[in-house]
């Protein structure tokens, strides 16, 4: 399992110097591991809803993205990922007002689930899109759901590439901040 963490660390370092392909492989590798951590956390309190598992997975992925500068390249990456996943899992369970103890585990203990997870959807993020400004929502939707590139999105929405990048970044930051806080 150390090999896997070494690979993640290498991918994150590559991503940090602007390698999008490495970053995509990292996030694709982390998603099933996060899913397994969340699923086990939910199972421990008797919850099995796949949709809600995916909400936490997506919240954790957003947090990993927005807070990626908090990983120190000289520190192991496994505990960093595990701590973020655990934080989001506990937050989610706490919001459901179930005081639950989630023991600290090594990420290495969490084997990824099968590839069927690739098609899983979260529902909360769709609700959250509604709280974004109109421009941010259009850009986030184009780049995610519609699979457009920055350039395509810019052409479609009649914006500059730079404006699309800014709207995407602010939109994702707002999503990360608002996760689980709608209606509060």
């Amino acid at each position: 399992m150390q090999d896997r963490e070494d690979e993640w660390a290498a991918l994150m370092r590559a991503a940090n110097v602007g390698d999008p392909a490495a970053y995509r492989r990292l996030l694709q590798g982390l998603a099933p591991v996060l899913r397994s951590i969340v699923r086990r956390g939910f199972a421990r309190v008797g919850m099995t809803s796949a949709g809600e598992v995916e909400d936490v997975v997506q919240e954790a992925l957003l947090a990993i993205h927005i807070k990626r500068h908090t990983w120190d390249p000289s520190a192991p990456i496994g505990p960093w990922v595990a701590a973020i996943a655990r934080n989001k899992l506990i937050d989610n369970l706490r919001r459901r007002k179930q005081g639950v103890e989630v023991p600290i585990e090594e990420v290495a203990d969490s084997l990824p689930d099968g590839a069927k997870g690739e098609e899983l959807s979260g529902r909360e993020i769709d609700r959250l899109l509604a709280v974004l400004s109109e421009g941010q929502r259009a850009v986030v939707r184009a780049v995610s759901v519609e699979g457009a590139s920055i350039q395509e999105t810019a052409r479609r929405l009649g914006m500059s590439d730079g404006a699309v990048r800014v709207a995407l970044h602010r939109g994702l930051k707002a999503l990360a901040a608002r996760f689980g806080r709608v209606g509060e």
């Binding site: 999008p20 995610s144 995407l168």
Partner: peptide
Amino acid sequence: MKTTQLIDALVQDQAT
């Protein structure tokens, strides 16, 4: 939104 679609968006957000 599918998780793979979210990852598409995260990968394209190469802000400073």
